Amino acid sequence: MGLKTTADLLREARDLITPFRGWTQGELARDAHGRPCSPNSPAAVCWCGTGAAMKVDGKAVGESAFHGLCRAAAKHNIIIPRLNDGGVTLDGLPPHEAILRLYDEAIALAEANHDAP
């Protein structure tokens, strides 16, 4: 398979945190014991919104998943470091749902920009 587009990477990151058990707050990633770890660690089992983007980055055409997520967050005046602390508010949604919504918007923006190999 060729290089992944930003939209592909964003979908991959969103899939990591879509099940509630795959999402965390306060750290970029955690292992099965709840200890903080690198988002790229093989021991990581859950990620914050930012950590999920960091995990999948590295093979994007154009911009990275992290930058795509930043662009969507900026539309709502959300500062990216807040994605790892659960402090995200968007349309009154709980933090996990708000982050998933931001991913949806980031994917739509990446697709609208025709980010393709």
Rank of each mutant, 00 (worst) to 15 (best):
D85L: 14
A72Q: 03
W47L: 06
A44T: 03
L102W: 05
G49W: 03
R71V: 15
A65N: 01
A65T: 02
K55Y: 11
P94F: 13
S41Q: 00
A44F: 05
E63W: 14
C48I: 06
P42D: 05
A53Q: 06
I78R: 00
L69T: 03
C48S: 11
V61A: 08
I99T: 09
D85N: 13
L83D: 02
I78K: 00
V45M: 02
K55R: 15
G86F: 03
L100A: 08
P81L: 12
C70R: 12
V88S: 03
G51E: 04
I80M: 08
A53C: 13
L93S: 05
R82A: 13
L93N: 04
C37T: 05
R101I: 10
P42W: 05
V61M: 09
P94Y: 13
A44I: 07
L100C: 08
I99Q: 04
S38A: 11
A43K: 10
L93T: 05
C46P: 03
T89A: 14
G92K: 09
G58V: 12
G86S: 04
S38E: 04
G34T: 04
R35V: 12
A53S: 10
P94I: 15
M54H: 07
D57S: 09
G86C: 06
F66L: 13
D91V: 09
L83R: 03
R101V: 10
K59R: 15
V45N: 02
I80T: 07
